[in-house]
């Protein structure tokens, strides 16, 4: 057989790239959904309002306690059935709300990591609570949350591989189909691993760059 097994990759390059595009689209939409939801819930989590903070805690605890695979199946076969979301959007919503729970925790940790004296100083110089949050606390928290946020984005891209179970044709689904028709498991899965790695590595380099830029101003 020799190296001919690898031709399954070159012959189906177009299909693989189409799958990769779906993976990226899905991750991007899920990210767009999870960032505002996650930040909102993270802010609620540190809020002094009991109702808001306990609602946020429940959300985080519940979503974090359910496996993503189960959430995907539930979104498509239970909720998607009534909302008629279809496989792609069921996947986006499931990934988005799943990731939001982790982003909320990152945001909370970031805000709480800013020394208490910062808030007190801001308040005593005449700022309102909201102004202090907006101009003093959040900019500092932002810098602190960048590294864990980066790993969360990378996790999101990797987690998106699970959507193949609800028939979305992402990179992993293309790979499964190629293995199913060519039986070249080693060649296909090795290539897929490299492709995922290239994407996530690129992303982490980008975030490193961003981090370094903000560090300079410190």
């Amino acid at each position: 057989m020799g190296s001919s097994g690898w031709s399954v990759i070159t012959d189906n390059w177009g299909l693989l790239m189409k799958g990769l595009l779906t993976t990226l689209e899905l991750s991007a939409f899920a990210l767009l959904l999870s960032i505002p939801v996650g930040i909102l819930i993270g802010l609620c989590r540190v809020s002094k309002n009991r109702i808001l903070s306990s609602a946020a805690v429940s959300y985080v605890e519940f979503i974090r306690g359910v496996p993503l695979l189960v959430l995907l199946m539930w979104m498509y076969f239970v909720l998607g059935r009534f909302l008629k979301l279809g496989p792609f959007w069921s996947g986006v919503v499931a990934l988005g709300i799943f990731s939001a729970a982790f982003i909320a925790e990152i945001v909370r940790a970031g805000i709480q990591a800013v020394p208490r004296g910062q808030m007190e100083a801001a308040r005593s110089s005449g700022m309102t609570h909201i102004q202090a949050m907006r101009f003093i606390i959040l900019p500092q928290a932002f810098r602190k949350v960048l590294p864990p946020m980066a790993s969360q984005f990378i996790t999101l891209i990797k987690d998106s591989s699970l959507v193949s179970v609800i028939s979305v044709i992402d990179l992993t689904q293309v790979a499964k189909n190629l293995v199913a028709t060519s039986f070249k498991a080693l060649e296909v899965w090795t290539s897929i691993a490299i492709i995922y790695f290239c994407i996530t590595f690129l992303l982490s380099q980008l975030i490193n760059l961003l981090e370094r830029r903000y560090r300079v101003t410190e």
């Binding site: 498509y76 998607g80 059935r81 028939s167 044709i169």
Partner: peptide
Amino acid sequence: VLDFEGYTNAALAVKQGQ
């Protein structure tokens, strides 16, 4: 043509009208 993991999930999507 949509690929599902196993016949049970594929049939379930039809049963549900999806």
